[in-house]
């Protein structure tokens, strides 16, 4: 699905605060599998996810999505690939305040040129899927943490991506909500989505649904193997 070849990411290159966040990382993300990246804070998990998800470009190395090399694509095409292939669930949710949950879900599809009515229909169905029909018209700042995260998941799914990327999805959730989240991911996985999660929450990486665990430390992959 996604393949990284010898990825290095250096921040603030050629400056006194130069920092190598990823060093010579190679990895193959398998299709329809649930992969978890774990490791201590600062080990490079978020950085790695941003490169896998075509959000950021590596300093060196190559990224292949499907069979397509995307490292050298200009912004327009990169955005296009990202929009169609990846759905993101951010740790801080990053919903847009002041507009409804429904509008937030529709947002990523606004620029695809889809008819407004059709898009709306689809977004409503997604919200329904997550038991949020009653909240479709509510402003997002009035939602509870769990509801807000489900809106975020719906938003990640609106362009029907093949891959879902979640960065520390359970950091702001209690145990019950964390388990609910994992339940949703399991369901999506059963619907053929590839799932990538960065987390140092044992609840996540010890979950039975996880197929593959990649351990990171100091910007390198220290261990990689199937979950027990």
């Amino acid at each position: 699905m996604v393949e990284l070849k010898n990825i290095t990411k250096v921040f603030n290159r050629n400056r006194p605060d130069e920092f190598t966040a990823l060093e010579d990382v190679s990895l193959l993300v398998e299709e329809r599998k649930v992969t978890v990246f774990k490791g201590p804070s600062g080990s490079g998990k978020t950085t790695l996810l941003s490169i896998v998800g075509a959000m950021a470009k590596p300093t060196s190395g190559r990224v292949l999505v499907g069979a397509r090399e995307i490292t050298s694509l200009p912004e327009r095409f990169l955005t296009e690939v990202r929009r169609r292939t990846f759905g993101f669930i951010f740790q801080q949710f990053h919903l847009i305040r002041g507009i409804s949950a429904l509008e937030n879900v529709m947002l990523p599809a606004y620029t695809t040129g889809e008819k407004h009515a059709a898009l709306r229909e689809r977004a409503l169905r997604l919200l329904e899927l997550f038991g949020l029909s009653a909240k479709a018209r509510a402003r997002v700042e009035w939602l509870s943490g769990g509801e807000a995260q489900r809106v975020t998941i719906a938003r990640a799914l609106v362009n029907d991506p093949k891959v879902i990327i979640a960065d520390e999805p359970t950091a702001h959730l209690d145990t019950k909500l964390s388990k609910d989240f994992l339940g949703i991911m399991e369901r999506l996985n059963a619907e053929a989505k590839t799932i990538l999660i960065a987390s140092h929450d044992p609840l996540v990486y010890e979950s039975t649904m996880v197929d593959h665990i990649i351990e990171m430390r100091d910007g390198r992959i220290r261990g990689s193997g199937p979950a027990e």
Binding site: T79, R82, R83, P108
Partner: peptide, 14 residues
């Protein structure tokens, strides 16, 4: 600024 960042992140072009 944050909102513009969100738009970029969810797949809007510059």
């Amino acid at each position: 600024r944050r909102e513009m960042g969100v738009l970029k992140a969810v797949g809007w072009e510059t």
